[in-house]
Design a protein around this nucleic acid. Sequence first.
DNA 1: GATGAATGAGGCTTCATTCAT
DNA 2: CATGAATGAAGCCTCATTCAT
Lengths: 221, 221, 221, 221
Amino acid sequence: MEYTSQSKPRWARRKDARPQELLAAALDLFVERGYAATRLDDVAAKAGVSKGTLYLYFTNKEELFKAVVSENLLPVLDEAEGIIDAYDGHSAQLFREFILGWWERIGETSLSGITKLMLAESGNFPEVVKFYHDEVISRSNALIIRMLERGIARGEFRPIDTARAQQVIVAPVIMLMLWKHSFNACQIEPIAPHEYLECFIDLISHGLLSNAPDTTPSKRA
Amino acid sequence: MEYTSQSKPRWARRKDARPQELLAAALDLFVERGYAATRLDDVAAKAGVSKGTLYLYFTNKEELFKAVVSENLLPVLDEAEGIIDAYDGHSAQLFREFILGWWERIGETSLSGITKLMLAESGNFPEVVKFYHDEVISRSNALIIRMLERGIARGEFRPIDTARAQQVIVAPVIMLMLWKHSFNACQIEPIAPHEYLECFIDLISHGLLSNAPDTTPSKRA
Amino acid sequence: MEYTSQSKPRWARRKDARPQELLAAALDLFVERGYAATRLDDVAAKAGVSKGTLYLYFTNKEELFKAVVSENLLPVLDEAEGIIDAYDGHSAQLFREFILGWWERIGETSLSGITKLMLAESGNFPEVVKFYHDEVISRSNALIIRMLERGIARGEFRPIDTARAQQVIVAPVIMLMLWKHSFNACQIEPIAPHEYLECFIDLISHGLLSNAPDTTPSKRA
Amino acid sequence: MEYTSQSKPRWARRKDARPQELLAAALDLFVERGYAATRLDDVAAKAGVSKGTLYLYFTNKEELFKAVVSENLLPVLDEAEGIIDAYDGHSAQLFREFILGWWERIGETSLSGITKLMLAESGNFPEVVKFYHDEVISRSNALIIRMLERGIARGEFRPIDTARAQQVIVAPVIMLMLWKHSFNACQIEPIAPHEYLECFIDLISHGLLSNAPDTTPSKRA
DNA sequence: GATGAATGAGGCTTCATTCAT
DNA sequence: CATGAATGAAGCCTCATTCAT
């Protein structure tokens, strides 16, 4: 679990790589234990350096935390926007590809850990959470809404409140990311991502399609 | 540092007349800040007692944490099981009532905070999380599965993999509970619970109903 | 050199006395070693308490330092002002009594240590030094000037630039205070305070008296 | 932790071509902040070299400190001894020239900083202070005493206890040196050196001259 | 020689825990 | 029972010192 330094002398590592190694170690530990419970000693040890080295690259624990967050905000979203605009198939198919692509390119990356971190530390770092919201949440929300609007405009999806639906639709994906770093890590009730996602896509697709009978049970009775 | 988990931890049921103020204060702070970042000074102050008093009722911080968890595991689930068995309306209607009832009786209670806590501290207290899983997660999962099976058995829901669907279906409800204690608390992108839930019920109901056309896009092409 | 606690249990000491004990210990060590070289562990040990106790009374090292300074600014100066105004003897006699009184009531008190501290830490704590200046230096300067002016007004002292003379006159007294906490403490070239002061009084009195011939050597030549 | 002082410490005379920039930078910072509060990083940066370079010339921080002291002990005193012996004017005139010359050649040099340093660090480096005493203090004391004895022998000064008078007489000069590096540096109550010295010379000259009436007030009464 | 990244001992500070009242 | 002063282990952070380049 701990990397021990071996043949290569410690100082031989490229100093340019240090910050990234430290950020990776810090991310892992912050996600696993939370900010307060993570000792910088452990971060340094996990990165294979001594405690003091950490301070050559980050002013203090809080700045390390902020760097961990900001360095892991991948700009994959830009790419996704292009895909949606260029897509010309059925919106349900787009939805499926979007969700699976999301999981591959975001859910399985370190951003899933950041998501857990933001939830857990929202009370302690409101400004960081605000930053994360602006950079990630609001942009991905817009993306989903755009996709839903496309489906509605093309008559493939029922007309629904896209803003609300977006909130509901992200939930299972986010939960999958959270689960991966919490209960899954505990070996409790593990969720198999792909089966889970296929089920999710199936359920939601049925819920979105326009040719479904508009018979909400409450109105039936 | 970690104790071994057993079938029924001895701290699970301590129905003494413990100062509920302490537990309430501890719950609030644990949820807001996390376990490590919560100072017992603050817990005591918030409960209006001195720090020493806390130790009259709880052996140490960890036991307080466990007590907070176990004391907040409401046994509402028993009640819910009865309701499902006794219900004789349409399953979609049952689903709706189940979800709204859940939110009222569980989501809006302190259990929503516990949920955030379990996610955030899963890495630090694996056997508390295990206990929470056994007491809450697995039972509520069974409940949802039972409800889905009822719908399928009555021909009101499509035949689907109920275990998978259950995982997808709880996700938005759990997210709502988490959101309430994270981003909502930050005044960021607040979610209005009832509108959110109605949208969720609408979407999932459409996804579950048996008279929906089975036209998943991938099979169409 | 270290007080060890004995029969009386540690906690039995009056909590009211704690801050004073800590301040006294801190003063000694700050004066002896300087601010940066003084460890709070040592301060606490010298006061007979543990490290943590210190933080019950002082926010941090810097605040302890400031408290040490401000708590040792004795308001003896007020008393001195009254004495000068009420005095009706020869000004040279007043001068003598003033200097000897100063030494007894100020020079031999902890203020002499504060003086060394202010000199040594002037570069690190300019605001504290400013405070010390306003509270002590400027007031005592005014006192000396008033005394010189009295002598001149009564024709007992030569007319001189009182502001300048004041600066020269305090110098030997201050030096005596500094010496006590530096070279004297090193057992090097010890100065006997009273003999030193008598010599000082004798020299300066001769320099001040009005019936001395105004024959500065430079004008003679 | 403290080494034993010997007659001639080996670090006393190291006339190598040591980077004067390092010594100058160290002097400035030691004087301004004190020994403990001075970081070698800052010394190196101020001297325009890297931190490692410092260790090419000085074994460690303490040796740097000692070098700073010993390198700044100017042997001007030898010169002064000659001047006194050769002088043939009035002793008061000699006194005046001596004081002004002292200020120019010593007070205004880096020795004034060393003086502050010795006072401030007397508790931490007793044997450095001892060395300073032997090299500077005792020699300059002897110089002043010799000058006073000359005046008395020539009948120009009153017969007084020259050892005591010497102590009083150096005080204002030392104070001026200290002031320059403490309160003057803080922009507080600045002292104008030359006016101060003229006043000092005037006062002390009057106090020393033999034709002054021997009417100390205490004997008058 | 000169550099500066790396180290780790040591000091400041926090806070869970104890205990005499 | 309740208190809160006291404790000291432990974590953050600094900086003197080392050493491969």
